[in-house]
């Protein structure tokens, strides 16, 4: 095993770096066994180790929603959980929602309603909207606004995002 040492922030003592160990994550219905350190966030595991770069890193502190994925059908911020804590869970990322040839209804609605400009927040917006639909709590525009408030869009495409989500929510009723 690796003999790399590191300085601990707490007391300045040298300690052996914790070696990575195999972690099996179920992502979009497929098992991925990755060599991860305990401190690897789910977001970094997805992007840097599983090669699924659809999920975006905005703030890395739970403040923007760009990293939103679904865990057992519930939307979470993948930047604020550790990959090892999600072993055994069913993870869905934007790559698992639709494909280039068969767009997810939310993806189609985002295109139809011009719900993005740069597109950086979009994967998180769409995963979050899917979580909102799974929850089944929001019906009106105000309710959708409130329950989509965990996703920030720097381009300010909120009007289109709201229209897109509303269309799919209405279609599900």
């Amino acid at each position: 095993m690796s003999t790399v040492s590191t300085t601990s922030a707490a007391d300045g003592q040298l300690r052996p770096l914790v070696p990575p160990s195999p972690v099996t994550l179920r992502i979009n219905g497929q098992d991925h066994t990755l060599q991860l350190a305990p401190w690897t966030s789910l977001l970094d595991a997805l992007r840097e180790y599983a090669g699924l770069t659809g999920t975006k890193k905005g703030c890395d502190h739970g403040q923007c929603g760009a990293c939103t994925v679904l865990v057992d059908g519930k939307r979470i911020n993948s930047c604020l959980t550790l990959a090892v804590l999600q072993e055994g869970a069913d993870i869905t990322t934007i790559e698992g929602l639709g494909s280039e040839h068969a767009l997810h209804p939310l993806q189609q609605a985002f295109i139809d309603h011009d719900a993005f400009q740069c597109g950086y927040c979009t994967p998180g917006q769409i995963c979050s909207a899917q979580g909102l639909i799974n929850e089944g709590k929001a019906q009106t525009e105000d309710e959708i606004r409130e329950l989509m408030s965990g996703n920030v869009c720097r381009c300010g495409a909120y009007v289109g995002i709201l229209a897109a989500v509303k269309e799919v929510v209405d279609a599900k009723r």
Partner: peptide, 8 residues
């Protein structure tokens, strides 16, 4: 917080 954070 937000729906995502409350889920965690």
């Amino acid at each position: 917080a937000s729906p995502q954070l409350r889920n965690m």
